[in-house]
């Protein structure tokens, strides 16, 4: 296959995943939440159990008026949703789906790339919060920035633990080095990474920045139509990305009970959706953390636990 064709195919596949996986997660969220709360969820759009609800939502968003507040900083306000979405698209490029060449762009330092690029998302939050010229937006943005900066630390530390265990920063390399007993060895790191990841994408119970009962909708308050849809899409791609990273780093990626070589992509996808289900489950189960509780959890629980895990990982590595 010529290089350009392969490149186009790979990028097309990533864009395809970028456009379909979040929709599937979104529809699952509708349905799972509904059934956990003893109702049906969307049932009409598309006929069969409301499968086309999100497509209908998307059409609705496209038709809505695109409003920019008069006092807003126009260019920054308009750019923010794109900046929010772009990092996640870049991250999807390096996540390995299966063994061998089943990754859009294998990177020697894939893990580091992922952590660096996900960290850029906070710039988008600050941009949208400030440019909206709205006090609720600004308050939400400051909360989000404090939250993202804080939770970045346990996220990076727990990911570093796996990198130390595997002896590589390459995501494919980490999956190859992974063994089932790591589930026990790296369990604290997995818990920390998952919780910090939830906070990183501002999912409930970590949705203080968009707390509707006090801040309307935080930094997204002034957004309408397509730009608002971009923020929503960023949240759902965020779920996919965090689930995929948890899968690749802690759950063994494409390693499954049988047929890793051919069915690897299936195991990866199954694990990703299982983790995404837990993300939805937590949203339905837990009330929102207060701002002080949120920071307390980060600095007094997650950071010490991840530091302890680093020590444990180093000790076991040296002992083996």
């Amino acid at each position: 296959m010529p290089l350009w064709l392969e490149l186009t195919l790979r990028i097309a596949a990533v864009v395809g995943a970028f456009l379909t996986l979040p929709l599937i997660v979104g529809q699952t969220e509708h349905k799972v939440m509904a059934h956990m709360q003893g109702r049906l969820g969307p049932m009409y759009a598309g006929g069969f159990h409301g499968w086309a609800q999100l497509i209908a939502d998307g059409l609705k968003f496209v038709q809505k008026e695109d409003i920019t507040p008069r006092a807003a900083d126009r260019p920054v306000f308009r750019l923010a949703p794109v900046v929010a979405l772009l990092p996640y698209l870049l991250v999807l490029l390096v996540i390995p789906l299966g063994p061998g060449d089943l990754v859009a762009q294998p990177l020697d330092i894939g893990l580091f790339f992922v952590l660096a690029v996900v960290g850029v998302g906070v710039v988008a939050v600050l941009m949208s919060a400030w440019a909206s010229a709205n006090k609720y937006s600004l308050l939400g943005g400051l909360r989000a920035a404090a939250q993202l900066l804080g939770y970045e630390l346990p996220l990076v530390l727990s990911a570093a633990s796996v990198a130390m265990a595997a002896g590589t920063l390459s995501l494919s390399g980490i999956v190859e080095a992974w063994q089932p007993w790591w589930l026990l060895w790296q369990a604290p790191a997995m818990a920390v990474f998952f919780v910090a990841g939830l906070a990183e994408i501002r999912r409930p119970p970590f949705d203080m920045p968009v707390a509707d009962s006090e801040l309307v909708f935080g930094y997204m308050t002034e957004y309408t139509g397509l730009r608002f849809a971009f923020f929503l899409l960023a949240e759902y791609v965020g779920i996919v990305v965090i689930a995929a990273l948890t899968t690749v780093l802690f759950l063994g990626g494409w390693q499954g009970p049988f047929g890793d070589a051919h069915l690897g992509w299936l195991w990866t996808l199954l694990k990703v959706f299982a983790v995404a289900f837990v993300v939805i489950w937590l949203r339905v189960s837990y009330p929102r953390l207060r701002e002080d509780q949120l920071q307390r959890l980060c600095w007094l629980v997650l950071v010490p636990v991840s530091l302890g895990q680093l020590v444990l990982t180093a000790a076991v590595r040296v002992a083996l």
Binding site: L115, A116, G119, V120, V122, V123, L126, A129, A145, L149
Partner: peptide
């Protein structure tokens, strides 16, 4: 490292303080 430290942390802190 430049992206992680400078874009993701230093400038964000700066913007945070300004805001």
């Amino acid at each position: 490292v430049q992206v992680l430290i400078y874009v993701g942390a230093v400038v964000v802190l700066l913007l945070f303080a300004v805001m």
